[in-house]
Design a binder for these strands. Structure first.
Lengths: 231, 231
DNA sequence: TAGATTGTTAATCGATTAACAATC
DNA sequence: TAGATTGTTAATCGATTAACAATC
């Protein structure tokens, strides 16, 4: 009876489909074929059809896909048809930036609380959301349904707080701390946003490009790039 | 003569190796085998050896890998041995959060400028970095070496500004705007950070887990989870 | 009906894992 | 030398692409 597991590679692509379909919807496009969509998105039509068919047949032979319907269905697949309440642990710059980012609400993600240990922040409001002290965490979670906890505090504290959250009954963590969380409960879903890692990937590709350019230059006989070991 | 292309799947794992090796280094560990590292990191030893051997033989039979050496070498591979100057376009909450995040500097990424169109922000300083008006962009880039531009402005403006940056000669973009940039120059490297997509992936896994829990409950005959369609 | 395009199966490609000879 | 562990080749697995029959 168990559903076949869908690979995370597929899941990673779904939000992108959702975004493109949203744009088509806004542009008033009614239907689209996998072929047309593939050209816009720079993927193969085959991949689109395979990806979608993991979840069901949303199209119609000879017609393609109804944009509005497919957009809605992908939204449901991604859980955007239900509201997700978020608390943010760590009300520093990043935490406050998340709280200020209104676009999440349109997708059903609502930040309902901010927590910090810094007494100077106690009671301060960010876009109408009060910053509370971490001691109040348990009481707050007892009174409010919290679906996701975003961790934006220093990595040293991340494990302890994450497990505290898990023990309160929170099953989903959006982790911005630069560690791999070690959780007591394996049923918790964790989504990592490691900005440093992202920068390093960018950096790798920068130096790779530099090397490629240097080779090109050498091939075409351009002068001026013979010195190496530059800082 | 061209180097064999290394897959992005490998590149994505390199920062994680770098991080674990850094932790081992701090903990005073001198050497580590692929097997020990694989246990810590929850990957196969085979994968570690394969990944590293894309870049060269950093280990020694019968010994393993020297932590300090390997850490350094991966750093070089990722381009962390050179300084990368960053400007941030969009000095809103996220832009300011990036500017305030000191940890990037330890990795060689230094934010040297913030730009915005909002006159109210003109001249304001964030951690000693002055916010400038977007008109000054070209002049600033002529006077300063800029290696990376981080885009944290609304998505509507992203394409135009990205291409403006590219035409100034910037080859690397760290894109936080929720669009796939359409660039005039294909040689530019783009690293996307799509926070909404990340949230949606998390959300998918949440509802998948909910469904799984519901099934478990049914199988083991537990009561109290028969009602469905909860908000 | 004819044309278009899906859903799905089969073929290919690439990435991961296993195995082991080389060697420290 | 014997034991350990790499670097690397071969085997497996999974993901992507191609092909095409089904069908709107």
């Amino acid at each position: 009876m168990q559903e076949k597991e869908i690979s995370q590679a597929v899941i990673r692509r779904m939000p992108r489909y959702y975004r493109y379909l949203g744009e088509l919807l806004d542009a008033g496009v009614e239907r689209i074929s996998s072929n047309d969509l593939s050209k816009r998105m720079n993927v193969t039509a085959s991949q689109i059809r395979q990806d979608l068919n993991n979840f069901g047949g949303f199209g119609q032979q000879g017609y393609g896909y109804n944009v509005k319907y497919l957009h809605e269905e992908i939204g449901k697949i991604l859980g955007l048809n239900q509201r997700h309440n978020i608390i943010v642990i760590g009300a520093g710059n990043l935490g406050q930036a998340l709280a200020n980012y209104v676009k999440f609400e349109k997708l059903g993600f609502v930040i309902i609380g901010l927590f910090d240990v810094n007494p100077a922040l106690d009671g301060v409001s960010v876009r109408g959301i009060r910053i509370r002290m971490l001691e109040e965490l348990e009481a707050f979670c007892a009174e409010n349904q919290v679906d996701i906890a975003a961790l934006t505090m220093p990595k040293q504290k991340a494990d302890a707080i994450a497990n505290r959250l898990v023990s309160i009954g929170i099953h989903a963590i959006w982790n911005f701390a630069h560690v791999d969380l070690e959780l007591i409960d394996k049923d918790v879903v964790v989504e990592n946003v490691h900005l440093s890692d992202s920068l390093m990937q960018l950096s790798y590709n920068i130096v790779r490009n530099q090397r490629a350019r240097k080779c090109d230059g050498r091939q075409s006989g351009r002068a001026g790039d013979s010195k190496k070991g530059q800082e």
